[in-house]
Design a protein around this nucleic acid. Structure first.
Length: 196
DNA sequence: TCGCCGATGTTCT
DNA sequence: GAACATCGGCGAT
């Protein structure tokens, strides 16, 4: 009988039960797939409840209630009338927080991603939060699902022999001076280059 | 290569 | 009624 594969390095609830900035930084280099499609996380942003740019800042609403639940779940929301964006819920000492997944280096299911994105340039498949959800087929249906199941798989990198760059978050109008954007140094798969 | 701008719909004031 | 954690196309450098 086939048994569900167990990956020793699959990230668990303890990983997400820490400060959002720590979780966001350590997600760089991780292997992230949904239904077998995805790749290496190369860009993330942290959002915390006490941060004016965070959806949890103004309290719980029907849309953001997942943010106030347990860590290790997906928070997906729809924005600009077009795009779904995916976050990983984090939490430390009862403070709601999330990590926005902004870019992935495609490694798994590349043909499927090319088809969904109508594009055959590898660097343009997942280089942005809206592109990423389109390539991985993540929609509002995936809001509130466990990152340890439900088609999601997040594994730690084999080694951490790489550098992480901090910079200002993108596309927000509040708290723009926080250096809460994290990216893999030198990666050509990020949404935007970072300042020198 | 850069910057502006329209698309498109949900949420919150 | 405004804002919005975006994207792709267009025109100007």
């Amino acid at each position: 009988m086939p048994v569900k594969a167990v990956h020793a390095k699959e990230l668990d609830k303890d990983f997400y039960s820490r400060d959002a900035c720590t979780v966001a930084a350590e997600l760089i280099g991780c292997h992230f797939t949904f239904n077998g499609v995805g790749g290496i996380v190369v860009e993330t942003e942290a959002y915390r409840q006490d941060d004016p740019a965070c959806h949890a800042y103004r309290g719980m609403t029907p849309r953001n209630e997942v943010l106030f639940g347990p860590p290790g779940y997906s928070y997906v929301y729809f924005t600009y009338g077009i795009h779904n964006l995916v976050n990983f819920v984090a939490e430390e000492d009862g403070v709601a927080a999330a990590v926005l997944i902004r870019a992935v280096e495609p490694t798994d299911g590349v043909e499927l991603m090319e088809e969904r994105r109508q594009c055959d340039r590898l660097y343009n498949l997942c280089s942005g939060p809206g592109k990423l959800t389109q390539a991985l087929a993540i929609t509002l249906d995936q809001n509130g699902l466990s990152l340890e199941d439900d088609g999601f798989q997040v594994r730690a990198p084999d080694s951490r022999d790489f550098e992480i760059v901090e910079s200002r978050r993108i596309g927000i109008t509040q708290a723009t001076d926080y250096l809460w954007r994290y990216s893999l140094a030198g990666s050509r798969f990020v949404s935007k280059p970072w300042p020198s």
